[in-house]
Amino acid sequence: MIRRHLPFATVAVIALVAAPLLLEPFRLGLLAKYLCYAIVALGIGLAWGKGGMLTLGQGVFFGLGGYSMAMYLKLTEAGGAGGGLPDFMVWSGVESLPALWVPFGNPVFALGMAVLGPMAIALILGTLVFRQRVRGAYFAILTQALAAAMVILLVGQQGLTGGTNGMTNFFELFGQDLAEDSTQRGLYLVVASVLGLLYLATRQLVNSRYGRLLVAVRDGEDRVRFLGYDPALVKTVTFAISAGMAGLAGALFVPVVGIISPALLGVVPSLELVVAVAVGGRHALAGAVLGAVVMGYAKTAFSEQFADGWLYLQGALFILVMTLAPKGIAGISRSIAGRLRHARAT
């Protein structure tokens, strides 16, 4: 029992106690950003690793969460709903607050929408698509098209969304100054705790009867159907859960990083997260989380050194991981652990 939970407890202590004490504020902020991505990655790990649904549109859900949060922040800063206008609206010549924006002045509504909005879209899309037994590569292509459409929509509706620049210049969250180190440290702790709790909840889910059904759907959808279950329902629910996680991650991302824009949620960022999950190991939830943090760190580190080289490195990394180690870091470490155990037994 203790042994099973030891790895998670160790990581939790390091993340919650050691990191805020040891890291300087800038590095802690970066780590918080990677952890936000890790929440999205956890959702991908669930949908793709356990459920076999390769979703290339998680950026859409991440973005919906992010934009919900950003709208709330912009409204509080502009003087509450119905009061002043957010800065970018003034620049685009919008004269009164659009009706779509009004309810986002309420933090409960904004946070609720950040999670429920993506879940609702995923439920609708999942129902339409999975009921018709559209799956595998087809599903991947459709989610990718959704991401592409979303970016064009956000860029085009300049007055509503801030266009290409998105929204930035957030100053306070719930009365706390976002520029303060203490606020950022608090945010980091919130992000890390949310990730930890979601990880535990997802692990519980995967180990439940529902989780077994999900894996069964991945490995033999028709057999599951012949046994009397409804695979479309199982997949839709899972897809919605992963969308909700991405939405929540987006909502946390905005105050941590201080910007949300179409460039953060299009086809490329969505794919990057999927690749991070693949690098970490899609079959293990911990691998997905690890992959997101490692890839996020690698991207920052290499981009700091040589900006263009990163793309070559990233490309080469995918090619190597896919051909040589399709199970990712988690797969490699598991096979090493297995070999060690084997060696000890003989």
């Binding site: 793709w48 390769l54 595998g136 590569a137 991947a140 794919l271 999927v274 690749v275 693949a278 263009d308 793309l311 070559y312 990233q314 490309g315 080469a316 990394l317 995918f318 090619i319 896919m322 051909t323 399709p326």
Partner: peptide, 28 residues
């Protein structure tokens, strides 16, 4: 590359995306 990944369509998707990243940067 692709020859080694037949039967794993989703993996080829990611692999070929890696290739396209490299080619795009090369063009740049």
């Amino acid at each position: 590359a692709i020859r080694h990944l037949y039967g794993r369509p989703l993996d080829t998707l990611l692999l070929t995306w890696g290739v396209s990243l490299v080619l795009q940067q090369l063009a740049r």
